[in-house]
Design a protein around this nucleic acid. Structure first.
Lengths: 183, 183
DNA sequence: TGAAATTCAATCGCGCACGACTTAATCGCA
DNA sequence: TGCGATTAAGTCGTGCGCGATTGAATTTCA
């Protein structure tokens, strides 16, 4: 084993935070606890699990709930429109929306002006669910004990991060090759 | 743009930001853009997509990569140990680890002292991959353009959020009922 | 105008995530 | 000691997420 030297902390003189942040070693870099991506991944699962007991009462899964939220905000979106709003492809949305249709929460209708597109409309039942769902964000907000300011700040951070990742993604394979060649 | 009414705020003593944060209307609450959970969800997908071109070169999926990271940090963990580290159940990990075994990156060995448990050990090939993977965090870090301090702060925020959600999850269904009854 | 290129939704296959359940080993305790 | 309870891993079914591909409608432009 590489890090089983008994004493984990090498130099407790300076604040550990500063040291780790500036002089991260190869070992430190490959520790799960230092992975921002893992924190995001875990928080995402935690949200899904926290929502579950509530969404069970509505008969929705978490992604289905997000689609409903998008439709409550703007009814009659196309599959592609929902996709770009939610960051999902038609191969994910088509079956998901079909399940919503089977539950009679939405109807799917091919556009007359452009028959390639499919428009998703809320049914009465689907619109009605909105009132019930209105309490969920407050409920979750109370559960996390976060202030709205903190929540907004985290959102801003996360959205900036997502933007940076989306911008970088196309050239990351190349960057990785270069990094490896140098290192 | 429904929040541009100007006359929404009952108590105009505080700055608009704080008011919006504290007195979000039902409409505002159900907008996707105000959902912290959606920001986490999207950032998670963005990470998966950003990692993909890099992980393709290693022949790993993103969850497989996280398992490998956990093993590089501490080899020989049991399925249950990996599960509690990664927040996953055996029904997710068992087939995942079997795929890693099929790639000859790990071996699975039933413990002799407790035959209910299975220990997962890195193979030569699996250990060797660590060197190649060492460059990935730096690569991603550079791609996001974040400072280590920012990353650590977000991690701290996210980990706190995850903790709060895990604590709250068991009683959320009840809280939701109460909220609905009152609202 | 008509053929090539593009766009949109849909289908298929694979891997992850998890609830419900099974099987086998270990533990607790009368 | 032996039997019920607990624990660990695994199996199965369902839904999400996406790469690859298809088919049909639309757009482009020679």
């Amino acid at each position: 084993m590489t890090d089983t030297k008994g004493s984990r902390e090498p130099s407790p003189a300076r604040p550990a935070e500063a040291i780790e942040a500036t002089t991260a070693s190869c070992e430190d870099l490959l520790k799960l606890g230092n992975f921002l991506c893992f924190s995001v991944y875990s928080a995402g699962h935690a949200f899904t699990r926290a929502y579950k007991p509530i969404l069970d009462k509505l008969g929705l899964t978490y992604p289905q709930y997000l689609v409903m939220v998008a439709l409550w905000e703007a009814d009659g979106q196309t599959i592609g429109g929902l996709g770009s709003r939610l960051g999902l492809e038609s191969n994910t949305l088509t079956p998901l929306v079909k399940r919503l249709e089977a539950m009679e929460l939405v109807s799917r209708l091919r556009c007359t002006e452009d028959e390639r597109q499919v428009r998703v409309r809320l049914s009465e039942k689907g619109s009605g669910l909105k009132a019930m769902a209105a309490g969920i964000p407050l409920c979750l907000g109370a559960a996390t004990g976060m202030t709205h300011e903190d929540a907004r700040r985290m959102q801003a951070d996360l959205d900036r991060l997502r933007g940076a990742l989306e911008t970088a993604a196309p050239r990351l394979a190349q960057v990785f090759e270069t990094t490896r060649a140098k290192g």
